[in-house]
């Protein structure tokens, strides 16, 4: 199989784009987490994130987050055009640090929950959700 110079350039450019894009997405997620934590260390675990393994419709994916002793929980969708989903801040009369909502997912990706605990520490967890039909329109 012979490639012309033009084809080779196109394939190379495609390969470069493929390898660069995930890094860009991750950078946006890291930025969002840093903005939330102020650069503090984030421990794994300590947050419960409940989302379906397979979501048929990315337009409404039910997600539940809870973290005992948290003052705030931020939810991120790593594969969305903008990773931010929602930030729940719990007040004095919150019965528990629990919230449930429905979110949009552009495609199969990781959903991340970062919790700020009452003592100022941070915890995170993530879960992969497979999406059959993406929810960001076209």
């Amino acid at each position: 199989m012979d490639f012309t110079r033009r084809e080779t350039m196109a394939i190379t450019a495609g390969a470069v784009a493929l390898t660069v894009l995930p890094f860009r997405a991750n950078a946006a997620v890291d930025d969002a987490i840093n903005a939330f934590t102020g650069g503090a260390d984030v421990a794994d675990g300590g947050v419960d994130l409940d989302a379906p393994e397979i979501a048929e419709n990315g337009n409404t994916v039910p997600v539940t987050v809870s973290a005992e002793g948290a003052t705030a929980i931020m939810v991120l969708a790593a594969g969305n055009p903008t990773p931010g989903v929602a930030t729940f801040k719990f007040g004095n009369l919150a019965g528990s640090q629990y919230a449930s909502t429905r979110i949009r997912l552009a495609g199969t990706q990781d959903v991340i929950a970062v919790a700020q605990m009452a003592d100022g520490s941070f915890a995170r967890t993530s879960k992969e959700v497979k999406v059959t039909i993406g929810g960001c329109g076209g």
Partner: peptide, 24 residues
Amino acid sequence: TTIIDVTMEPAISTNPYFEFEATI
């Protein structure tokens, strides 16, 4: 007195739904 304060981004679905718990 605040129970919950949610900041929402465009990734929240149409007809936003929230479920949470409160102490009365």
